[in-house]
Design a protein around this nucleic acid. Structure first.
Lengths: 233, 233, 233, 233
DNA sequence: CATGAATGAGGTTTCATTCAT
DNA sequence: TATGAATGAAACCTCATTCAT
């Protein structure tokens, strides 16, 4: 965890002395900050609360982070570190058909991201992007772009294998992205997406969405070409 | 020094000092508030800014709205709550099949809500719900619940007419809701949903989503029952 | 009631036109102001409340009184107008002994001042004197000084007639003043003088005080000279 | 620009910047608050003024007291509430007769309360009671009630010992309370009680009042029963 | 390194006062 | 004259940030 790079810029030359839990401090603060920023929003979270939850004093927080804004940036950077490379490799090796692949993909994504604290970052970015264009750009570059690229490759693979229809990938990616995004927001913005978020079973939600995405809700599995509808718009 | 000078553009010819327009004020303030709340967030918007954009002074705002929070409630009421009844009536009269209905429904929703300023409220609520539980409850009751009920009725109608598969409505509604929500968020949270929001053609997005939702992305329009996949979860 | 003199200074030359209830307005405002200032204090009373209670609009109040402070001054001036001359004459004619005179005096004072709204002025002055030295001086000159002079004459008369002990009038006046003042404050500052102000019967209070003042609480009506105690200080 | 410079006089030699004196702060703030509240009234005193007089900044005040109102409560507690127990004990031990006791009592009260800054609280409560019912209730319970109870016990003791007439204590207490209250008000509401407050010698005032209360102003120390007057009302 | 007392800019809200009608 | 919509100074209180210890 090379966190030190992120905040210690001016005093890189300082000799390292006592190392009790010094190294752990920034991480604890980032964890606390993520929790609180997601839970209460950035503006509504007081710096002292973050410090308290991390078990340190207010002053210590500002020892590690120049400002509350810098703390937010660090939180985002820390929690979106490129896991995409490993996933990409993993998916490259995957041998099932597209149905299996997308099913595996969405479920594994929920287990590894959606169900974890990291999913709060999405909510956080959505709320604060306007106020922090710099980290929004960073987030787009580090998360959105690789994420969409990954999904495009999966869809392209399906098309190439003749398992998926010929899709305009620029729009088809959102068929996969939108349900995932919505699930995260439902989890973190209780009430404004879903009536009772606690009652929503993520796995069943994913299954339902996959079923629709792959085979449609329609009973017309016969001759009625799916392309017909496009014209009716 | 009246701040109004800084913002009023349309009536630069008038000697704008203490115009008395009791009727028009609330509407102007609500418009200004919607713009700013969506643009900067509720907490980050100062009451004085809202007043200035409406071309009045700080004090005038509090003449019409008891508090900043009450102003937000009024914004929600003004832009969403009152419109469900007419939509409901409209959809009840619709005579086409489910494909036509959902297509009509999503497109008309985009034209009347998604493409308008009112769509910013969704984003707004998502960001501020945690901090203003009272408003969140109000929004859930006035917007989320009626909206989902409307979609459930449309899906149920399709099932009853044999046009849609037998669906678990508790989960199927999100097949419709998620893409709509995502489209709004893409519009208002530039960058954190979509790479380049400006390039996303809403109508084409809706068409793609509808095509997927209704008929699936899969080429397997044959014997492969859509129910099979559920087991693979 | 030559109230006009009090507020109309700059436009005394203006011709008098329509006289509906114009003349009565200032008086109604002063009445309302007295009530509210006494009830809630000067600072806590809003100008609009005064106007509302007088049945006019906020603007009208400022038509008659230059400012809220001027209104207060007018209230005080209006309600302490020299009733002392008539009382003085009345007391000059009184023919009873000192006990009868003081008894009559305190009771009549309660009936004519203490029990009326005018008594609120005392409370008002006490609270606001520091903030309005000008009217405090006015009040002292118009009320305190004549009041004390009156009491001094009554006591002096008693001494001259041999009914009262030889008193140092500079201090003896307060033997009469203090109980009266306390009674008014008990009435207007509920709770901070008396536990339950409503239970205090003014006439019984006055009788008790008079009994003490005139004859003492002590049973030692015998040889123990009242002057003895003075030495023990 | 630290306002403290404007008020701090005693420590001009110290480079007064950010002195840390957690222990001393509350006391300094309470002293400053008492002074200003008494001098200008509660509502008219700005929180920042209190802080400035205590030599700290606005924020520091709210570090120690949740609100301005809470500060007032603390002022009352600090200066009055806690002292009744010791006084009560002291008076229980007193062995003189009622004349001696009341004389001792009123003089000691003046020395310990009346002559000190604490006496300003009485005036303060009188002015603000209506606007802060919670504080008024607190004051009644903590100060008025115990104070009256103490005086009742003293009078009852005198009656039991045959030194005082059979009194209706519900009214007789005010024979003692009223002069004390008046003396305080004379001191703090200069001009509206007494012509020239500076000329009033408290000790002489108390002696005069005691003399009257105990033995009466009347020369009729003979057979004329003090009860006669009651009928003449 | 760590603390937490101290700071003060900044936000919401109130209300005396003005002025166009 | 009378109105009441509009104004904006000022008050309370919060909290990010600093700095003496």
């Amino acid at each position: 965890m090379p966190l030190s790079k992120l905040f210690c810029k001016q005093d890189a030359s300082v000799a390292v002395k006592r190392e009790r839990r010094k190294e752990a401090r920034p991480g604890e603060l980032l964890d606390a900050a993520l929790d609180l920023f997601v839970e209460k929003g950035f503006a509504a979270t007081r710096a002292e609360e973050v410090a308290a939850r991390a078990g340190v004093s207010k002053g210590t927080l500002f020892l590690y982070f120049q400002s509350k804004e810098e703390l937010l940036k660090a939180v985002v950077r820390e929690n979106i570190s490129g896991r995409f490379k490993e996933w990409n490799d993993e998916f490259l090796k995957f041998e099932g058909n597209s149905t299996e692949m997308l099913t595996y993909c969405m479920n594994i994504w929920w287990d590894r991201v959606g169900a974890t604290k990291a999913s709060g970052i999405t909510k956080l970015m959505m709320s604060e992007a306007k106020n922090f264009p710099e980290i929004a750009a960073f987030y787009q570059q580090e998360v959105i772009a690789p994420g969409q690229a990954l999904i495009r490759r999966i869809l392209q693979r399906g098309i190439d294998r003749g398992e998926l229809r010929a899709l305009d990938l620029d729009y088809a990616v959102y068929t996969i992205v939108a349900p995932m995004m919505f699930l995260i927001l439902a989890k973190h913005s209780a009430g404004v997406c879903v009536i009772n978020a606690a009652d929503l079973d993520p796995k069943k939600y994913i299954a339902t969405q996959l079923s629709a995405i792959l085979h449609g809700l329609s009973t017309a599995a016969d001759g009625s070409s799916p392309d017909k509808e496009k014209k009716s718009t």
